[in-house]
Simulated assay, not measured.
Amino acid sequence: MLMAKLLDEKVEIATELGADRDYIAVIQAEEISRQMMVGTEGVFFLVLVLVGAWIIYRALVINERLKFAQQNFLMGVTHELKTPLASMKIYLDTLKSEKIPNEKKLEIIPRLKNDVDRLEQLVENILEAGRFEKSGYKVHKELFDIVQLINYSADTLKDHSLKQELVITKHGLPPELLFYGDRYALKRAIESILENSLKYSDKDRIEVDLTFEHDDKNISLTIADNGIGLEKKDTSMIFERFYRVGQVINQSKPGTGLGLFLAKEIIKAHGGDISAQSDGLGCGVQFTIQLKVMKHNENNIVS
């Protein structure tokens, strides 16, 4: 409205001064062109402001998320260190006591070993996460039996299950399958997922299904449990560094948010993929690992 009024005033002044129609038409064209330019510049400036505001907002969100992740990590590490150290101290004091029967002392040794293994895994996870951030993960490949590795990892999980009944059902595992990759890294990745099933369960009986499928080009390992499950928004976030579901301060489950992150990086370093799926809280979680089969020739390995 304001622009139209200004144009009318210019035309009126030109008419009063006796300008002919051609001159008035030129004035109108120039004014319309100027108004369009001003309008375009205004829109461009508005878009620029909105884009800048969005970038600042995203930076603030990322910064807050990073601060939250760091807080989660520090609280998680503190909890992970204090809990096994406290129980180890109790176990060692018990073992020193002459009043405790030897049979009871023998029962304590596996629990003490579990706490030592837990501390060792924590330190190793932190060191590995630092290496990934610095230079990425470098695989040390060799030819090994991946079926044997999966069976060993499942048996290790049973050894860690001291308080709950654990039932692991295996489907489709062949007697043997040679795979070219980093044996110890893949063992860590698979065990991290299996331990997740053990850790995040509120049931006295934990059920884990391992389903193995393969052809000439691909290997698929699905690990499904009957644990507490996940909300849909968490199924992709759980593979981020330091991410843990919910507030750490409200969590009774141990962890630092590094296990699944390391598992993802290891699988990616092998050219594979890992994903999680859940029908919601209380419905368990299904992890799927996809790997490419590497064929072994006499002198080299080809995909």
Rank of each mutant, 00 (worst) to 15 (best):
K105G: 02
K99N: 03
K96S: 02
D145Q: 10
D117V: 06
K134G: 03
L85C: 12
K141G: 08
E142C: 11
L50F: 10
Q70R: 14
E133G: 05
D93C: 01
E41Q: 15
E80G: 05
L50D: 08
Y91K: 02
V147P: 01
L112K: 03
A86Q: 12
K104T: 03
P84W: 06
K141Y: 13
L95R: 04
V51N: 07
R118D: 01
Y91E: 04
V61S: 07
I146W: 05
K99W: 00
N72P: 05
L92F: 04
I90D: 05
Q121Y: 06
L50N: 09
I62Q: 11
L127H: 09
K138P: 08
R58F: 13
Q121D: 12
V49T: 13
K96L: 02
L85F: 10
T78A: 14
A129I: 05
V116L: 10
T40P: 03
E80R: 05
L127I: 12
L85D: 04
K99Y: 02
I108T: 07
N72I: 06
H140Y: 09
N102V: 01
E120G: 11
N63K: 13
L74C: 12
Q71I: 07
I150Q: 02
G42T: 10
D145V: 07
M88P: 07
T83Y: 06
E64P: 00
L66T: 14
L85V: 10
V47M: 15
N125Q: 13
Q121M: 12
E80Y: 08
Q121L: 15
D145C: 08
F68K: 07
W54H: 06
I108V: 15
L85S: 11
T83W: 01
